[in-house]
């Protein structure tokens, strides 16, 4: 323990000495302004601390980025990534010219915009409502219950959806029949797939989504409210003109992040709810990549499709962020 300090100490001083010798405030400088090298040496253990994480990101995130080159090659596993031959944009052309390209793009875009339109405002409204209610048993119970579905796994969620929508015995189907309406075959009907996906997502995540807004709302200056009450502002007006503006920065940040992920509809839930009957509206880019890449082993082609997807996402994110930067002051970077 003591040793390491003795090692670090003299070396630090050594490195400084040439400059330090001439400076008048030698002692003060010695204590605060050490050179980069001595600081790095003194904190060598911190590099050890980040090493596993750096290694992890290099291997499991940066190495696959290197593997992206197979999108421009005809990857043959036996030849390896480097030795497979280059084919340029052939795979991209094939994808853009395929008959399913339009459908895939439309399904992905419409599903995620639909989800954004319903799923994004609801947590904001819910958070504003929570904020109006004083802390107590009621508020706590509603929060605990609405947060809970967030922890249900995708598989169980899909299982619940399938069970509740089962035409023969599903709870929701029974409920709809109660109103004298003939329930559609939700999961076998392509026109219903997106609604089922979006509504179930809202059920699962709207409550959890309020937390981030509630954190922002807790920062509202109570004096603003007091002043507004004196001026005779109603509760509703205060919510609209004090509380809502407070969370606007949070809203914009989350909106930017969501817009940057418009083509990023995940495969996890879609894959579980997909069946041959709803395929025409449920097949999105990510499930297509999974199917053509891992099920049918068209490695290069599906990598190209995946690359197209992430490039569009990255461009969208930067563009939306830029627009947000210009119009308001909030941006990611």
């Amino acid at each position: 323990m003591k040793e390491s300090v003795e090692i670090a100490g003299p070396e630090g001083v050594d490195l400084q000495q040439p400059r330090m010798g001439r400076s008048p405030g030698k002692m003060r400088r010695l204590a605060s302004g050490k050179s980069t090298w001595s600081k790095m040496l003194q904190n060598w253990e911190l590099y050890l601390f980040v090493a596993p994480a750096v290694l992890y990101f290099l291997i499991f995130h940066y190495a696959p980025m290197y593997g992206i080159q197979i999108a421009f090659k005809n990857f043959i596993p036996a030849k390896g990534i480097l030795n497979s031959e280059w084919v340029g944009f052939q795979h991209f052309e094939r994808f853009f010219n395929s008959y399913y390209f339009g459908d895939l793009l439309w399904n992905t875009l419409s599903l995620s915009l639909y989800e954004l339109a319903i799923g994004f405002p609801l947590p904001i409204i819910l958070a504003l409502a929570f904020n109006e209610v004083k802390n107590g048993f009621f508020k706590k119970s509603v929060q605990t219950v609405t947060y809970a579905p967030h922890f249900i796994s995708v598989v169980v969620m899909a299982g619940m959806i399938i069970t509740f929508l089962s035409p023969s015995s599903g709870m929701l189907v029974r409920l709809i029949e109660l109103f004298g309406i003939d329930a559609p075959k939700f999961l076998d009907d392509p026109s219903w797939f997106k609604t089922v996906y979006v509504i179930s997502g809202v059920w699962q995540n709207a409550g959890w989504g309020t937390i981030i807004y509630l954190a922002a709302l807790s920062g509202v200056d109570p004096q603003l409210h007091e002043a507004a009450i004196v001026d005779g502002a109603s509760r509703f007006k205060r919510m609209l003109h004090i509380n809502l503006p407070t969370i606007v920065p949070t809203i914009s940040i989350l909106l930017i992040l969501n817009m940057g992920n418009v083509l990023g509809v995940g495969y996890e839930k879609v894959l579980l709810l997909q069946n041959s009957l709803n395929m025409e509206s449920s097949d999105v880019i990510s499930t297509f990549v999974y199917r053509s890449g891992l099920v049918n082993a068209q490695f290069s082609f599906s990598t190209a499709v995946g690359l197209f997807n992430s490039v569009v996402n990255a461009i969208l994110l930067v563009t939306v962020n830029q627009i947000a930067k210009r119009t308001s002051k909030t941006s990611l970077w």
């Binding site: 904190n43 990101f57 995130h61 940066y62 990255a314």
Partner: peptide
């Protein structure tokens, strides 16, 4: 020293990834 660089290296992976197939092949 170097924390900004390492942080940036981590953050990039949030917005851009190799994708499903290259990860699988790895």
């Amino acid at each position: 020293i170097g924390r900004q660089f390492i942080m940036a290296m981590f953050l990039v992976t949030m917005f851009f990834s190799g994708g499903l197939v290259p990860s699988y092949l790895l």
